[in-house]
Design a binder for these strands. Structure first.
Lengths: 333, 333
DNA sequence: TTGAAAGCGCTACCAT
DNA sequence: ATGGTAGCGCTTTCAA
């Protein structure tokens, strides 16, 4: 690997001049620039990004922390962020936190240690206090899908409560009066908000909330199937079931098929997230759309604007869910 | 951010000693170690990974290049790699290449520029020559899902041809004699190999290959639907259809449903990859299992063994696909 | 417009 | 067992 020193030697100029043409900020005469450029080409010179970062204290990279590297939700989020960043010559360094406080914290520290200029975090387990401290320390970051009052300007959120409301309102509009609910883990903020929306919709329709009709799942497919069984096991009647995400909804669907329950004739199902596969399930899944791609893009734009001073960007911090009606829900017959 | 210098001052020892306790390699007396550790704690010291990399010429990170950041296939691959690496204290730096030669090359250079100790590449567009050069330059890397004779020791592959063979053999065993095929882009190595396997299976069964029964898709869901239409449009009869991946198979399924073609009664379908959703489609999809998780793990182990000298690892470079029979295929009635 | 030189925060070699 | 110090490859003042 050639270094800047060899380039300067071959071009017959100083280190500083080579550095200048690389960053073409300071004025350099056309002929010296030419010499440097051809020396670089001749040596196949590639700047050492590590050395650049150390010297300039700027790495042109932003750290992205997701819960998991797999799964449609995070995939879209990472894609959106990477595309947006790359178009401005910035790079994403990705790490995962596995919804575990220690891992999340270690990953954040790793990213800071790699001198990321900013962070985009999807964290669930780390405490509010930790994040507030982080902000106080001057680390610049944006939070996706988590709202913390004290650092509200760092947050990009979906109105999850509104989403839960929409889902329930939809089946209520379809005349269903007995509505079951499979929630996410109760310690997760978004799971709480979605369930709250559900309760609110029931309340607005003057229907009493029945906690027996709620099953707490873990956002995995498997817990959808388990949830259906548990709900059926209560002996309580219900004609519609709202799932706090699409994976669990798909679990409910498979289990329903095994039990010879026809969907939507005998049971209407509504999901949440609108992951890519929702439209390929059978029947196609009615769900609440989570605009994660746009939110990922917005997170990147935030960073571009705040950290890299890019102008002309319209920033927005709260996104509204909308219902995507498909074939898994229908009027109560 | 505290630096090593401040730690050494507070602990009343030299830079070198602090460095030693950080990397705890050289012998340091327990009491000095104690002093240093508490100084670190007091200052909330975090080593600067960038400076460490520059000085040591080792970044403890491996670059991972995938075609896309989303999609079940790459998600599993990244997850496997990240888990394996993290368990040894190494980190993954992820980039995407979008199956485009320029982007792939730029990403590889980015990763090299970030001083990754090694690379794990899933590249499709970059030329064999480029990769051979890379190896010659001394960059250490492993290739996933691509075989290049000259650098065969860098390759971790699935026997795609065998996979194509298995898929076709399966429907042949089920008495189907007229088998259509929706392939991936013909310029992709894996697409070619899978199609080859298909042809071989036909040949072994003494069935003439009919190029009209092949449609070239692009591995996207959409092209599955388009493929079914095109195939139907030829007027040729077929009772089974092999798809070079599950996404296209799912496209065929939705389109078949729209056309009131019952699966598997009127049409058997076989996919390839066994992505997580294959088992949640309706009917559940018969497919060729691609052990991408194990392969990702193996790629990481290769690096661990070769670059980081970890011993006791059993290395393997060619994986065998196996058929996962579900409900989308059945005996020709 | 160009060059000289002082770091950036750390590692690793050579002394002691 | 510990300290001194020369780099790692680059950026960025400050002079010329």
């Amino acid at each position: 690997m050639a270094t800047i020193y060899q380039v300067s030697e071959l071009a017959g100029v100083s280190l500083a001049t080579v550095s200048r043409v690389m960053n073409n900020n300071a004025r350099v005469s056309d002929k010296t620039k030419e010499k440097v450029l051809s020396a670089m080409a001749e040596l196949g010179y590639q700047p050492n990004a590590i050395a650049q970062s150390l010297a300039s204290n700027c790495s042109n990279s932003v750290g992205v922390l997701v819960s998991e590297l797999h799964g449609p939700f995070f995939g879209d989020m990472m894609s959106a962020i990477e595309q947006t960043l790359r178009s401005e010559g910035k790079h994403a360094i990705i790490a995962s936190g596995h919804s575990n406080a220690d891992t999340e914290q270690a990953s954040i520290e790793f990213l800071i240690g790699r001198k990321c200029d900013a962070l985009i975090l999807h964290v669930e387990a780390v405490s509010d206090g930790y994040l507030i401290d982080l902000a106080a320390k001057g680390v610049s970051f944006v939070l996706i899908n988590r709202y913390i009052e004290q650092i509200s300007t760092h947050c990009i959120c979906l109105d999850n409560q509104q989403g839960g409301y929409l889902a329930t309102q939809h089946v209520l509009d379809l005349q269903h009066a007995q509505v079951a609910y499979i929630s996410g883990p109760s310690w997760k903020q978004d799971a709480q908000a979605r369930l709250n929306g559900h309760k609110l919709a029931l309340q607005d329709a003057d229907i009493a909330f029945d906690s027996e009709l709620v099953f707490e799942g873990d956002y995995q497919q498997q817990s959808g199937s388990a949830g259906l069984d548990a709900l059926l096991g209560t002996g309580k009647a219900f004609s519609a079931i709202i799932c706090a995400n699409d994976e669990m909804a798909s679990g409910v669907m498979s289990r329903a098929r095994e039990l010879n329950l026809t969907i939507p004739d005998q049971l209407s199902i509504v999901g949440f997230d609108n992951i890519i596969y929702a439209r390929y399930l059978y029947p196609t899944l009615t769900t609440v759309d989570y605009p994660i791609f746009q939110m990922g893009k917005m997170a990147a734009n935030y960073i571009l604007a705040k950290t890299y001073d890019k102008s002309g960007l319209v920033l927005r911090d709260v996104f509204v869910p909308k219902l995507e009606v498909r074939n898994s829900s229908q009027l109560l017959s």
